[in-house]
Design a protein around this nucleic acid. Structure first.
Lengths: 138, 138
DNA sequence: GAGGGAAGGTCTATATTAGAGACCGATTTC
DNA sequence: GAAATCGGTCTCTAATATAGACCTTCCCTC
């Protein structure tokens, strides 16, 4: 709120400085894990309700079991989701958001809303780019 | 259906439905591009001020030229950044956020703030996970 | 009691993608 | 005229993702 440009305040300058430090930087450290296709999608899945392995897989039809397992482990390791095994006959495993995972839904939701609101414009931009830059002129 | 959990409103159920449609889904379509390490970091870079190719490269020391070029092209194609060539003697190229790119800073900033605020807890969770799940007990 | 299906995975083999770094053309500098 | 800068491209290799076969335990059918 200290600038005249829309969002561009000093935070971004600081983040920029921090990115130089690579692994020491929270932004990179968290974003590298969190801002990835499947983990984000899994979080969205579990936002509605806790779900079991196969249910998440069904919700994300083009994820492989391997990636699903791997992504779930990572989210669990980062403390965003919890894994709970029920001793049913074919043992069932339920994944649910932790409070930390829940707390991420707000910023993530904002990003998703942005995505929905601007999807049309992005697609417009893409077709224009494709027509010009790679098509007839290139 | 509707639940009593904190953030969990019907948006997430809708998004979950949409993810099944894969490429037709704005969430996936945008997130696949946007929620990736380098593009996010480049956006942050350009948030502070327009910058030239080499400057962005310097700000992100461990990005390769190839990835930088590729990520810039993608952001340009999506209409988030604009590329402007100046006919200086060694021609210089400046990248700047478009209004669309600017508009993404708000949700992106929220996510980054979350990352900073929760980095400590995430790291705590990770070391705990590493100690238990893969270490002495496994 | 052999076979099959469901749950929750693992493992392997292959395709895709990222990263390192050589190279390029233009221009300026020494 | 050799070296360096800028903004890339190109190739080769390393890492990562995907598809899909397979595993184990239990219940059910035949």
């Amino acid at each position: 709120m200290t600038s005249k440009l829309p969002i561009t305040d000093s935070r971004f300058e600081r983040w920029q400085t921090e990115t130089a430090l690579a692994s020491a930087c929270p932004v990179r450290d968290v974003l590298d894990h969190v801002a990835s296709k499947w983990t984000t999608l899994i979080l969205i899945c579990l936002a509605a309700r806790p779900q079991r392995f196969a249910a998440i897989g069904r919700a994300l039809p083009d994820i492989s079991k391997r990636m699903l397992t791997q992504s779930l482990r990572q989210l669990q390791r980062d403390g965003l989701i919890a894994r709970q095994v029920f001793p049913t006959k074919p043992p069932s495993v339920e994944y649910r958001l932790t409070p930390l995972g829940q707390s991420m839904l707000a910023p993530l939701g904002a990003l998703i809303d942005w995505a929905e609101n601007n999807h049309a414009e992005i697609r417009r931009s893409r077709s224009q780019y494709d027509a010009f830059e790679s098509g007839s002129i290139g």
